[in-house]
Design a protein around this nucleic acid. Sequence first.
DNA 1: CCTTGACCTCAAGTTGGCTTCAAGTCGTAG
DNA 2: CTACGACTTGAAGCCAACTTGAGGTCAAGG
Lengths: 150, 150
Amino acid sequence: MKLLDISEVVASSGLPASTLRYYESLRLITSAGRHGLRRQYEPEVIQRLALIDMGRAAGLSLGEIGALFGRKATPDIPREDLHQRALALDSEARGMMALATMMRHVADCPAASHMECPSFLKLLRVGSAHRARVRVRKRQAVRTPSRGRV
Amino acid sequence: MKLLDISEVVASSGLPASTLRYYESLRLITSAGRHGLRRQYEPEVIQRLALIDMGRAAGLSLGEIGALFGRKATPDIPREDLHQRALALDSEARGMMALATMMRHVADCPAASHMECPSFLKLLRVGSAHRARVRVRKRQAVRTPSRGRV
DNA sequence: CCTTGACCTCAAGTTGGCTTCAAGTCGTAG
DNA sequence: CTACGACTTGAAGCCAACTTGAGGTCAAGG
């Protein structure tokens, strides 16, 4: 297969060259060679970038993504981890949808100010209580560094 | 009503005092006075913090949240904006759920490596194509500074 | 051969949202 | 009255994920 010039990768991935170089410095991708100075990539890099992209969308940091790849080209994520991530994503998504519902309710609510609408106030309390709990858990996780993985 | 000492606000909001001071410096909240040096807050601050929290959960920056409050105590967000935000949230939530579904599929997929599962590859392409489009839109938004609000 | 322009490197800068630090100030318990 | 400890201040630091800038190199077109 022919190699792709960095400009082609930029075009087809939508990522700027600086980001590609940055990812390379983090060893998330590798360039297959140079043409003069210009990086040339194997076509698989596109798939790999898509994978990285997906990891980001799933809430992973670049460091975590790098760890998933390990030394191999394909990630081979433990299936249990995938289930965990899926659960976390679902719950986050549900939270967002609840919030959306709430915002719609508020938008259509006849009370003059949102702060006078009892439903709004109730949802406000519930939502923030939930997020407060999450914050507390996070802080505990930081104080107890070993058990933090997802 | 009695005022709340900052320590009480810390306890009931779950936010550290440093964050409260930070929010105050951004004029997102106000302290009602001091007891010695200690900030005292009106009880309403709890609600306000919940509101801020909600805004963050909805994807607003602290700056945007401040703008929503304007000079008034209650936000009075234009209802159309709320609908827009709700739509954006829903679509993001749907994306996350799709991702979760995909991860579950992959977890249960019999292919030896994820990269050999055709469904995975297909979803990978679709998802990343979508996010690439979003990226392009964002960059255009930056280049065209005037139309960027939500 | 020479110019051009897209790439290169490395270091430093940016953004958002906080946190941390050193040094200082108070109210309160003893 | 004094010590304690929880608060205060302003400035600086931190983190992730990039981006930007200055100065350099190179392949290709004219």
